[in-house]
Design a protein around this nucleic acid. Structure first.
Lengths: 220, 220
DNA sequence: ATCTAATTCAAACAAACGTTTGATTCGGGT
DNA sequence: ACCCGAATCAAACGTTTGTTTGAATTAGAT
């Protein structure tokens, strides 16, 4: 019970910082939401910035649920591995429970790249790209040109990240009610079937979907 | 020359808003960088928020300096209209001559949407989406489900915007020399062929396709 | 030259910000 | 009971914010 207000401050700070950003979030609002005095943040953390880094660290330590690599069954056909790859990536990116500032930090790094960008690429993006490259090699064959394979990988990942980054625009474009009807499985199937056909491989095997166009599946 | 300070204010505001965010950017800094008086923002735009909205709108609208929508020859087949659509969008987005903060301020709007997002959608995104929808309707037929058409549009636009947004990651992933060999025409053909095949309307991009850089653009 | 409207300027406005202060309350050790 | 440090509180601190004001300046038309 001693450090109760300290923890409440971290929780409230994470919520408000992620919602309004660092500058827009005020210490008064955080303390009010934490049912703490205004001077509590200065007593427990020193200043506003120290509270922010404490909240970021806490959120990061709590968000270790994402596993860096996913292992597929060896006998799974490559088309289904691609579907799982896309579905898993969508699931992680569109997970509404994870803190919202992940997107903000990443987009800021895209606009103003720092050395952190290279670290993220080597730690996270490169392994994921290699995993996708393996799937594409099994799909397209060993002799497929590497440059073409890269472009196809970009086309696939670009489709996924579009729903992650441009969510506000999509909501405004098709309406909130239409957006909320979209499910991860729907998008994963759309992107997978579209991409498989884009590679000239037709819809995924085992599905009774029509041959050429992506027909409407069962809409939830 | 009359509205010179107004334009200087928009440019300075875009740069500072993109770098520091809306709340952290002060109108004093903006006016100082624009060599304008502090009251200029209030005189020309009313308040800080209106200046921000003007900067965001400018970031999207100055790409198409002439017309929000491009008119195609009526006899042009829909597949080639799609190719031109993709090539034009790529050309506008990857134009290296346009200011650096256009991407930054847009990505910040994606992370923390404000009323400027809705303004951009109505002024710029919605007409472009309607233009793409017309092309897709000609490609897929009148009776194609609207929801499915939206998803296909998202898949196409997502591929284009990937190269716009994630340029730092692509450079780190495939190397600068490989990235600099990419041309707008190469990417446009890749995305167009991939997407046409994804809709079941054309051959998949093959190995021997004309993937060689055709022309070198002016690089700064 | 004179008038008029548009534009720029320095100065000050009230409000909100992060931070600090000093008194007050609470709990366990002596 | 006494004391001491931890913790919380209301109030005020000085600074910076966005915004407003009214005079000064400019440019064009009469």
């Amino acid at each position: 019970m001693i450090d109760d207000t300290r923890q409440r401050l971290i929780d409230a700070a994470g919520a408000i910082f992620s919602e309004k950003g660092y500058e827009a979030a005020s210490v008064r609002d955080i303390c009010q939401q934490a049912s703490a005095n205004i001077a509590a943040v200065n007593y427990h953390f020193g200043d506003k910035k120290s509270l922010y880094v404490a909240a970021v660290r806490h959120a990061q330590s709590c968000a270790d649920s994402e596993n860096p690599e996913v292992v597929w069954p060896a006998e799974m056909p490559p088309a289904e591995r691609l579907r799982e790859f896309i579905r898993t990536m969508l699931e992680r990116k569109l997970d509404t429970s994870k803190p919202h500032w992940h997107l903000g930090i990443m987009l800021r790094e895209m606009a103003h790249p720092t050395e952190a960008c290279a670290a993220v690429v080597e730690d996270y993006v490169r392994p994921m790209a290699n995993g996708l490259r393996e799937i594409l090699r099994d799909l397209l064959g060993q002799d497929y040109p590497e440059d073409q394979g890269n472009l196809i990988g970009f086309s696939i990942v670009g489709q996924v990240l579009f729903y992650y980054i441009h969510q506000p625009i999509i909501r405004l474009l098709i309406g909130n009610e239409a957006y909320d009807k979209l499910t991860v499985q729907t998008l994963a199937d759309q992107i997978t079937n579209f991409s498989l056909a884009g590679m000239g491989l037709g819809p995924a095997p085992g599905h009774a979907a029509a041959a050429v166009p992506v027909q409407s599946e069962a809409t939830s």
